[in-house]
Design a protein around this nucleic acid. Structure first.
Ligand SMILES: [Mn+2]
Ligand SMILES: [Mn+2]
Ligand SMILES: [Zn+2]
Ligand SMILES: [Zn+2]
Lengths: 138, 138
DNA sequence: TATAGTATGCAACTAAGTTGCAAATTTCAT
DNA sequence: ATGAAATTTGCAACTTAGTTGCATACTATA
């Protein structure tokens, strides 16, 4: 619980109840979280607008990153790479379980190199794998 | 323009003005189209709800497919693979140009195989590359 | 050309997200 | 510890995207 305060301080963010609650949710969660997850799981009720703004702040600071999904929902997860204000380096594969719907950051799996047609150049590649996680293997 | 009618007939869809207009837009467009693109470019004005329903119908029939994007917009493009009712096989890489914002289906580029952690199994992999297209190369 | 079957357009509704602003909370220098 | 300044929060109001029910219009077929 002190880790939460440390992270907020390191990022020059004032220590507020909402930020502590949301950040500790991320720290204790294995997979990714949506806005709705947070609204549901935060014990002391948080205003939905505060949640929007807190998530935005955390993304800007490089504390969490947005996960691309194929169903156009928006998910967030802790940055484990050395991300900082305005500079994300979360170049890993994301995995969504079709059974439990948990979304994992596969930090250890590098994004594969895709060979593009002549004249095309890559800036960023997002890979989202759908399937069954280890807990739900079919 | 007869191709449009042929495609609709092949798929047992009645020939309506809206469907003809939307499908011919897809046939004459290089990249992908959003709902808003269609609303804008259809000359004879189409009701936005008709557009929603027509896109849904075309996706169901395997005439167009939904393209995963990283900015959570929804894009559609013609299926060139042999997709059919309820069975899509659009296993190709998608490319979004950061300059002209055109989204291309790179039919010729296969989705790379990602090696997952033990216990995880793949059902579908989506790859979205952002960068600069041949027309916009920096 | 009449009829049955579809598709369309409208209205009304829901869900997600944004912005402005006053009140509350946090920070920080005394 | 105290109070002022700076920041964050919660509310209201608004926007945008998408869905559903239903009466009307259109399309297919005999
Ligand atoms: Mn991640
Ligand atoms: Mn495609
Ligand atoms: Zn699972
Ligand atoms: Zn381009």
């Amino acid at each position: 619980m002190n880790a939460v305060i440390d992270i907020l301080k390191e990022n020059n963010l004032s220590i507020t109840d909402g930020r502590k609650q949301i950040l500790s949710l991320f720290l204790k969660t294995d997979g990714a979280l949506s806005h709705a997850d947070i609204e549901k799981e935060a014990h002391k009720k948080l205003d939905r607008i505060t949640i929007y703004r807190t998530l935005q702040t955390f993304v800007n600071k490089g504390i969490i990153h947005v996960i691309p999904t194929t169903d156009n929902s928006i998910l967030y997860a802790l940055c484990r790479d050395e991300c900082s204000e305005g500079h994300h380096h979360d170049k890993h594969v994301h995995f969504v379980c079709n059974e439990c719907h948990t979304t994992y950051c596969l930090e250890q799996i590098d994004v594969p190199q895709v060979s593009l047609p002549k004249g095309f150049s890559e800036v960023q590649t997002d890979v989202v794998v759908n399937g069954y996680c280890a807990k739900c293997k079919p």
